[in-house]
Design a protein around this nucleic acid. Structure first.
Ligand code: ZN
Ligand code: ZN
Ligand code: ZN
Ligand code: ZN
Length: 281
DNA sequence: ATTCTGTAGGGAAAAGCCCGGG
DNA sequence: ACCCGGGCTTTTCCCTACAGAA
């Protein structure tokens, strides 16, 4: 831990979730309704090679402070997604910025928008369309298309956060705690505090040992149903719907895909000098 | 024997849905 | 009618432990 050098020889540090969704018919694809994509436009499809990309950057040095890269990386990704217009310029970590677009199913890069961009009169790939809906991440080639689209959100979402400008159907206060850091729900057992009561309830099972979800095959119990569902894949054969963009290996989950390692040790710790073969060491 | 690497298990965050009380 | 929050839920992410392979 500590400060890390992220030596990016692997072009996608986190495996694509969206892009891989094509291989899994049950994936909830939230594409549709985008007026720029036309009716029945299919999900990502075979991802086209990205055009106009800078060549993969060889080394990106970044001081991560006291936090490890795996702690800081998710927020970088989220911020890049929320703030990006179309270019990585100004981003603290262009690597993260590239990553999220290369993997993004919401606005797949391979598809051209139907209307030309106002400035250039070119049909841009959807992922590069400059008009960005902050509520759903869809992209539009011109402001009026975005405006029209956003009126649908105004109907659906009567609440709007003054901090991040996102719209919600309810529970605005609860969302705003993600900005304020307020943690009103206290565990009397261990003293930890949580932003949502649901976190506290689930957390309390770690003290009580309650495991309400039971595997019908092996009778093992789990505290969270998501864990049971993941576990049950171990009984049901070799379903491997996710594959790595870079090496093509298949995995049963995005988690497994993200944890797998590549040759070349893309991660290096500046403190101990050790090369790491994957982000999770 | 040591290092790599895939996998299982477990702790959380964010946000959607339903509902009842005020 | 409207707002709010509790309770429950799904989805996704992050991390660790560990066993078998290299
Ligand atoms: Zn907000
Ligand atoms: Zn506790
Ligand atoms: Zn089981
Ligand atoms: Zn790979």
């Amino acid at each position: 831990d500590g400060s890390m050098i992220f030596n990016k020889t692997c072009p996608s540090p986190r495996p694509a979730q969206g892009a891989l969704a094509t291989q899994r018919s049950t994936f909830p694809l939230a594409l549709s309704q985008c007026p720029e994509q036309g009716v029945g436009s299919s999900p990502v499809g075979q991802e086209l090679p990205l055009q106009g990309e800078a060549p993969i950057q060889k080394t990106i040095t970044k001081k991560w402070g006291n936090r490890s890269i795996r702690d800081i990386f998710p927020s970088l990704l989220k911020r890049a997604q929320a703030e990006c217009g179309e270019s990585a310029a100004g981003m603290q970590d262009p690597t993260a910025h590239r990553g999220i677009h290369a993997q993004d199913a919401i606005h797949p890069r391979g598809k051209l928008s139907q209307r030309p961009d106002l400035a250039t009169q070119q049909r841009l790939p959807m992922g590069q369309c400059p008009q960005h809906c902050i509520d759903c991440d869809k992209r539009f080639s011109n402001p009026s298309a975005l405006n029209q689209h956003q009126r649908t959100h105004a109907r659906e979402q009567p609440y709007r956060c003054s901090d991040c400008d996102k719209g919600f159907i309810a529970h605005l206060r609860r969302h705003q705690r993600t900005h304020t850091g307020e943690l009103p729900h206290h565990c009397a057992e261990c003293g930890k505090d949580f932003a949502q009561i649901a976190y506290l309830r689930i957390h309390q099972r770690t003290h009580t040992g309650e495991r309400p979800y039971r595997c019908a095959d092996c009778d093992k119990g789990f505290a969270q149903i998501a864990h049971l569902r993941i576990h049950q894949r171990t009984h049901s054969g070799e379903e491997r719907p996710y594959s790595c963009h870079d090496c093509g290996k298949s995995f049963s989950s995005t988690d497994a895909s993200s944890a797998h390692a590549h040759r070349g040790r893309p991660f290096q710790c500046t403190d101990c000098g050790k090369s790491l073969h994957r982000a999770y060491s």
